[in-house]
Design a protein around this nucleic acid. Structure first.
Length: 234
DNA sequence: AATTACTCCAACCGCTATTAC
DNA sequence: AGTAATAGCGGTTGGAGTAAT
């Protein structure tokens, strides 16, 4: 390792470190976290940098409470896949596996425990997938592709579903302490990307940008590459 | 006001999978 | 094909903040 002899920092990140990391991660499109850690001058492991970026600094991260709709989706997919947090997170743009995992531990598990103790109140959501893939005309809603919905690996939902999108109307996004700075990048980056879609009003946080292929696990990754490292959510 | 209990979540650790050589 | 390096994932922990007593 390049850090031999050097002491790697651990523990909470400082704002200066975050700025260094965001700058480096933006410059270096390849997700070579060890290189990013080394070249940035951060005394952190690549692993630590990756974790910090994915869970905190990445653009379009949503912070704050998990909405009822999101909870519903988490419940559905957890029932389907179990503790596959990263996979579940891919179905909830802006949420991290860590966040979902934490949420499950603190909220859902407790709820299930309560149910198992006898006072069963079937808050269990209908398995009907249409509940999870409803459409609405809300202009501020997230809209994202689920064209990989029936992929062999993630075999859920109605076969042959023609639904192209579903929306989470109450989602907010980019609420991290550095959201303002990160938000500044986005128009600059997206202006170069004709494939990028703009959803919402375009005024402030109601506006969001996403690539059509953004959320498809199986999609052609060239779309992601074309968007640059900032858009590499997976 | 002080203490305790609880919740939340950022961050670390260990393991596995993937990639590069 | 084998090995090492790196990335990714899921489990766990510890500290900060808050509510309850």
């Amino acid at each position: 390792m390049a850090y031999q002899g050097d002491k790697l920092r651990k523990g909470p990140w400082h704002e200066e470190e975050d700025e260094l990391l965001t700058a480096s991660a933006t410059l270096l499109e390849e997700r070579k976290w060890d290189s990013i850690a080394r070249l940035s001058g951060l005394m952190r492991s690549g692993k630590s940098c990756r974790m910090r970026w994915l869970n905190y600094l990445r653009p379009n991260l949503k912070r704050g409470h998990i909405s009822a709709e999101e909870e519903q989706i988490i419940t559905q997919f957890h029932g389907q896949w179990g503790n596959k947090w990263a996979r579940i997170a891919r179905r909830l743009p802006g949420r991290t596996d860590n966040e979902i995992k934490n949420y499950w531990r603190t909220h859902m598990r407790k709820e299930i425990q309560t149910q198992e103790e006898g006072n069963f109140q079937p808050k269990v959501y209908s398995a009907k997938p249409e509940l999870l893939y409803q459409n609405s005309d809300s202009t501020s809603a997230w809209k994202y592709s689920i064209r990989d919905y029936n992929s062999a690996d993630d075999n859920i939902g109605p076969a042959g579903s023609s639904l192209e999108h579903y929306e989470l109307s109450s989602l907010t996004h980019m609420n991290s302490p550095y959201e303002t700075r990160q938000y500044d990048w986005i128009p600059k980056l997206s202006s170069d990307q004709s494939q990028t879609e703009v959803h919402g009003e375009g005024n402030g946080l109601d506006c969001c940008f996403c690539d059509p292929a953004w959320n498809s696990e199986d999609s052609d990754t060239s779309a992601l590459v074309s968007l640059g490292s900032l858009w590499d959510m997976n």
